[in-house]
């Protein structure tokens, strides 16, 4: 099957988003995956993608071909992606507020946590074929040979541990040094 060439600028954007996918969890990660999927659908061209899905010969062809055949159906992937996007936008929004450590009141955090939990009930609706589509998009594009550079990985805010070789404490010190100098 034909390999879709992705221009370097889009490839970098995709890899950056995938790095964020690796660095987050509880639905916020899937939000970035969704961003990658939507961007890649546009890069493939929707019609071309549907045709490619229908002719897939990979080990996952039973699922991918079905995605292609049902793409425009009421329960097809096109409509599913809209639904998934709405769910993930809400999850991302509530997640961002929840993990904003600058929130002053504990009560406020409780409310936001409740809101986040409300969104979590929609997670099971993000079905497996969404991941199948993602694998297909990666597998058939030039991006599959790229690496995720450590510089794109978000620093974890978990028990002072770091990720991607960047030390958070060091970053903070550097930041305060700059502030003092100013």
């Amino acid at each position: 099957m034909e390999t879709i060439n992705i221009s370097p600028i889009y490839a970098t954007t995709i890899v950056q988003k995938l790095a964020l996918y690796c660095s987050s969890y509880l639905g916020n990660d899937v939000y970035y995956l969704k961003e990658v999927v939507l961007l890649m659908i546009n890069l493939y061209g929707e019609e071309k993608l549907v045709e490619m899905l229908k002719q897939d010969e990979s080990s996952n062809k039973n699922i991918t071909r079905k995605i292609g055949e049902n793409w425009y159906e009421p329960n097809g992937m096109k409509k599913k992606l809209v639904r998934i996007s709405i769910i993930l936008e809400k999850v991302n929004k509530s997640y961002s507020v929840l993990y904003d450590r600058t929130l002053p009141k504990k009560e406020m955090e409780k409310i936001k946590y409740k809101e986040f939990l409300k969104q979590c009930k929609f997670f099971p609706r993000i079905e497996n074929d969404f991941y199948a589509l993602f694998i297909f998009l990666i597998e058939n594009s030039s991006i599959r040979t790229m690496n995720i550079s450590a510089q794109y990985l978000k620093i974890l805010d978990v028990s002072k541990k770091t990720f991607g070789g960047i030390q958070k404490k060091k970053l903070r010190e550097d930041y305060f040094d700059v502030v003092k100098k100013d």
Binding site: S58, S59, N60, K61, N62, I63, N128, Y131, A132, F134, I135
Partner: peptide, 8 residues
């Protein structure tokens, strides 16, 4: 989920 879809 990724592995499941990769291996079909």
């Amino acid at each position: 989920k990724l592995c499941l879809n990769f291996s079909g």
